[in-house]
């Protein structure tokens, strides 16, 4: 396969970037998208040019490090992570446009790499439980209904890649925040801090300058882990409950 790649190049955070076009020959359909970028980078290095910077780590679709917008869709044409996208999803002669996540809360560090520290600060604000550590409790010491456990687990599969923010027309981080709120809110261990958690996390979300959710659903449509849109509804319910409850103080 021969591919024409239009890639966003930006030297550093404060420098203006631009789209640069590269031709790549002999791309195997079995290559992952990142391997195709590796091939490009090897070529660029041999030519004495700066390689394209992109984030990646496990390349197994479980760490959440990679992620670029491919032809206008976060993580590209398949609902998966960029590392699990293969070149067989494209055709010979395609022109592919590759851009970084775009959001004020995710400033570009270099080329396709963005700073997703805002997500970490949302977690720090309340995405945890305060529990005494020690030996692991017995598995059946605290019964959890199967459906609750399943929903908590589904929400917990969020890898924090940021595709939801990239895809959202409002650049909202609500699906990420809602996944964390739902994950902990479904489990008994998450109950003592449930009301405080949602308030703190939503405040931090807004403080990080993410936009608001308008239930468009682009986030859930691109989420590689299939976090459902209704987790955002659960977050709303928790927040409204917390704001209207007087007895919780």
């Amino acid at each position: 396969m021969n591919i024409t790649l239009r890639v966003w190049r930006q030297k550093s955070r404060d420098v203006e970037g631009r789209m640069v076009t590269y031709e790549i020959e002999d791309v195997s359909p079995d290559m992952s998208f990142l391997e195709m970028l590796d091939v490009l980078n090897e070529k660029l290095t041999l030519q004495g040019e700066e390689p394209v910077a992109f984030d990646h780590d496990c390349r197994e679709g479980i760490c959440g490090a990679c992620g670029v917008v491919i032809d206008g869709v976060a993580h590209g044409p398949e609902t998966t992570t960029t590392c699990q996208l293969h070149m067989r999803s494209f055709s010979d002669g395609d022109v592919i446009t590759v851009e970084p996540w775009r959001a004020t809360a995710f400033p570009v560090v270099k080329d396709l790499v963005v700073d997703r520290g805002a997500f970490d600060r949302i977690i720090q604000a309340g995405g945890y439980i305060s529990a005494p550590t020690g030996t692991a409790p017995d598995a059946h010491a605290m019964p959890v209904p199967k459906s609750d456990a399943d929903r908590a687990f589904d929400a917990a599969t969020c890898i924090g890649c940021g595709a939801c923010v990239a895809a959202c027309p409002n650049a909202s981080g609500m699906l990420f925040t809602a996944a964390k709120v739902t994950h902990l809110g479904m489990l008994p261990q998450g109950q003592p801090e449930r009301e405080a958690r949602v308030v703190k996390m939503v405040n931090q979300h807004d403080e990080e300058e993410f936009g608001g959710c308008t239930n468009i659903g682009e986030c859930a449509a691109v989420c590689p882990k299939g976090i459902p849109l209704d987790t955002i509804s659960q977050l709303n319910r928790d927040l409204l409950g917390s704001l209207t409850s007087a007895s919780s103080e």
């Binding site: 239009r6 966003w8 789209m19 917008v69 032809d71 206008g72 869709v73 976060a74 609902t79 446009t97 851009e99 775009r102 959001a103 004020t104 809360a105 895809a167 027309p169 409002n170 650049a171 909202s172 807004d206 300058e209 993410f210 936009g211 608001g212 308008t214 682009e218 449509a221 691109v222």
Partner: peptide, 21 residues
């Protein structure tokens, strides 16, 4: 909300290619 969304992704940061999923 429109103003916040506008600030969350200003015009200068708009995607070159945009497609709905």
């Amino acid at each position: 909300l429109w103003a916040r969304a506008k600030h969350a992704r200003p015009a200068a940061q708009r995607y070159v290619v945009r497609k709905s999923a």
